[in-house]
C-alpha cells in the first residue's frame, strides 16, 4: 500500500471552538492550540495522515490533505 504524505492541514479558524479533541488524540502530537485557543499544526512534519483529527473534530473544522507517495 502506498504511503500517504501530508500536503496541508486546512483548519477553519472561525469554526474551531478549541475543544482540544484533535490535540489530545493525535498519535504524533502534530496539533496544538494557539494563543487564541484555536487548533493549528505545530509539528506538521510528524503527521502520518491518519486523519483521526479530521474525523473526530466536532466542529468539522479540519481537513487533512494528503497525497500518495
Amino acid at each position: 500500500m502506498a504511503k500517504k504524505k501530508l500536503k496541508a492541514h486546512h483548519i477553519e479558524r472561525t469554526w474551531c471552538k478549541g475543544c482540544g479533541i484533535c490535540v489530545h488524540f493525535c498519535p504524533k502530537q502534530v496539533l496544538a492550540l494557539d494563543e487564541h485557543n484555536i487548533a493549528y499544526p505545530a509539528d506538521p512534519e510528524a503527521c502520518i495522515c491518519c486523519r483521526m483529527c479530521e474525523y473526530r473534530c466536532p466542529d468539522l473544522a479540519i481537513e487533512v490533505e494528503c497525497q500518495e507517495t
Binding site: 472561525t14 469554526w15 471552538k17 482540544g20 479533541i21 466536532p58 466542529d59 468539522l60 473544522a61 481537513e63
Partner: peptide, 29 residues
C-alpha cells in the same frame, strides 16, 4: 468533501465546544 453536504452558512454551529453531536454529524456525512 464534508462541505458538499452541509449548509456552510450556518457554521460555526451552535453546539458547545467539544460536544459529541458534531462528531456524529461528521461521521454521518
Amino acid at each position: 468533501s464534508v462541505k458538499d453536504y452541509i449548509r456552510e452558512r450556518f457554521f460555526p454551529h451552535m453546539w458547545c465546544p467539544g460536544c459529541g453531536h458534531g462528531v456524529v454529524l461528521n461521521a454521518m456525512i
